[in-house]
Write a protein that binds this DNA or RNA. Structure first.
Lengths: 186, 186
DNA sequence: CTCTATATCTAACGTTCGTTAGTATTTTAT
DNA sequence: ATAAAATACTAACGAACGTTAGATATAGAG
């Protein structure tokens, strides 16, 4: 097997194991078994178990998040947010599992303090970003901040449904819920 | 120490450990250390680690949930749901941690298949129950089901904020968000 | 006071874990 | 073709784990 491929395959399998059994429930031996390589090969490519876990969150998870953020606003906010959520349905299995593991860490259900701090930093940027996106459409609304907060809360549950509970969310249901919160805008 | 007390204390400490480190990251030795008893005492009161974990979910968690469900509807839905969520802030530390562990299992971030099935059964009852509560107030609304679904989604995020992320949610913020979703009712 | 049941302990068993030392194989560069 | 570097393996170490055997202490009943 070509070297870079094996390194990626290890990470891919590790994501599944960390998701299913958590950091402590995952063993290097089980990963090596599923990858069909010997146990020390994991240590050839990763310093130790923690570094493997860290790389998944720090590189893979935040890559997905950054990709998502760079998706551009459309002329219609409701269309934009509907697409924003609906597109999660079509994430690759690997991306979905990485996302799921990220949420697990985000809720401090797994991972260490350092990763949790990264997540807290990330979380702080969420509300302001959506406030910027929504601002132009919130002219004739009195409780601007509450609407943004409510929408972000709603988005969070929908993301969890798709990514954590692995459910398909139909576009019309997503749109309905977003419309209920943003009804009265523009 | 009186016998029944020790049994409860073990469970109390176990909840903290399972929350912080997950099922596999929790060791009977660490629990015994924190409880200040010898290791085999855990096995005197619980068959094994799994039974200890199971009892927390099956008895403690579902007790909290059942208590919550039995809270009676008030004349005003918005008051009712605001109180429903706000009261979570005042849960005891122990109850909050038990609730948190339950959510962890609910999202299948921990626990085994059997517990996950219990959670799935529970989940099926959520939407219908809230539909019953809201029905009288949804007369002049066309998309009844979507409103109920959106509200339940919103409640879920707020519960997670209080119980999982351990944040205090002020009553006015809770009310604002519920009002946004239920605006136009009654 | 003694017997018995309950509550608690020390010590250990066998297993599995993360990790590494040491060695062999394959690829690449010259 | 051969030396060097990269990739892979077998085997093992020491530590920690879940669990239990067996002994000891405590308390209530007669």
């Amino acid at each position: 097997m070509a070297s870079a491929d094996l390194r990626e395959k290890i990470k891919e399998v590790a994501v599944k194991h960390f998701n299913k059994n958590g950091f402590y429930g995952t063993t290097i031996r089980n990963i090596a078994n599923d990858v069909n390589c010997s146990l020390p090969m994991i240590y050839y490519y990763y310093k130790n178990k923690k570094e493997l876990f860290d790389e998944i969150i720090k590189k893979e998870f935040f890559n997905i998040i950054k990709k998502q953020v760079s998706s551009l606003t459309m002329e219609n906010v409701i269309d934009f947010y509907t697409k924003f959520i609906y597109d999660l349905n079509n994430l690759s299995d690997y991306d979905k599992q990485v996302y799921r593991l990220g949420i697990k860490v985000y809720m401090s259900f797994d991972g260490d303090e350092e990763l949790k701090n990264l997540m807290d930093e990330w979380e702080k940027t969420i509300l302001p970003r959506h406030y910027q996106i929504l601002k132009p459409y919130l002219k004739n609304i009195d409780n601007e901040v509450a609407v943004v907060r409510t929408l972000v809360h709603l988005l969070e549950t929908m993301i969890e449904n798709i990514v954590v509970k692995n459910r398909f969310l139909p576009e019309n249901e997503i749109r309905e819920e977003i419309e209920i919160v943003l009804r009265g805008c523009q």
